[in-house]
């Protein structure tokens, strides 16, 4: 080993192995999801007198093409929680798989304890933040709502793990078009009917102005008694507003 030539060759071999390693390792040149493929648009959630209401349409866009028309984006999680998702649909399905496993293992304790909406929300935050730290985010914005022990809970997580709780939340375009309405009109003691009416007003606005929205939606309700997700239905629309018929009037371009 004292021979400088042998030492040099040994070092070359070692460094050679290292170079090979970084090129051939599965980490080295792997590509993460750089953009979403099939996406769902806004989800809106509100607290109301007895629990939580959530609304989402059923469109699935392949880029800007509205490719699917019956995507269920509101799902039950365990006994006390409701999850709504916008963004990459297959990533949402992956999240549902994680949650199924989570709830299964929680039930396997068989001890009367169960995860509530707050626990599910925090769990999802950890999952989303962990994936973004691997530079491989789950491309979704999530809304989690539920009721446990008389306590209403509504929160949201973004694809990079930003999370918060509020009385009303929305994802994507809903943040711009629905939340201003909710800030004006939401109140603590909305009845079920008033809540649904408010959500429909928001969804109608989104339908008019969000090109990815489709006129087929579901509304879900979760209370202490349990969870119900409505059958898909459509909203009444009126497209004969002057601004719709001649959108460029009074907004002349520079050319």
């Amino acid at each position: 080993m004292s021979n400088p030539l042998i030492l040099y060759l040994c070092l070359r071999m070692v460094s050679g192995v290292m170079v090979m390693d970084s090129l051939l390792s599965p980490e080295g040149d792997s590509q993460r999801t750089q953009y979403p493929y099939v996406t769902g648009t806004s989800v809106i959630g509100i607290k109301y007198k007895d629990g939580i209401l959530m609304a989402a349409d059923m469109g699935g866009s392949y880029g800007s093409t509205i490719r699917y028309k019956s995507v269920e984006r509101l799902k039950q999680v365990g006994k006390h929680s409701l999850l709504g998702a916008s963004g990459e649909i297959s990533d949402f399905q992956e999240i549902l798989k994680y949650l199924d496993e989570l709830i299964l293992h929680d039930n396997m304790w068989d001890d009367g304890n169960s995860l509530g909406p707050k626990e599910v929300h925090n769990y999802l935050t950890r999952v989303m933040y962990n994936r973004r730290n691997k530079f491989d985010p789950l491309w979704n914005s999530l809304v989690i709502g539920g009721v446990k022990n008389g306590q209403k809970y509504l929160g949201s997580v973004s694809m990079i793990g930003v999370h918060f709780e509020d009385d009303h939340v929305a994802t994507g375009f809903g943040n711009h078009l629905a939340r201003p309405i909710l800030r004006e009109e939401w109140k603590e003691d909305l009845s079920f009917e008033e809540g649904v009416k408010l959500l429909e007003k928001c969804m109608r606005n989104l339908l008019y102005r969000d090109r990815s929205a489709v006129n087929k939606l579901q509304i879900a309700k979760i209370t202490e008694e349990g969870l119900t997700i409505s059958q898909p239905y459509s909203l009444k629309t009126f497209w004969n507003f002057a601004a719709f018929q001649n959108p460029t009037v009074g907004a002349e371009g520079s050319w």
Binding site: D111, N113, L115, G116, K118, E119, N122, Y123, R126
Partner: peptide, 9 residues
């Protein structure tokens, strides 16, 4: 993970 206390049982 859950931001809530571990059940004693």
């Amino acid at each position: 993970t859950y931001e809530s206390p571990l059940p004693v049982g």
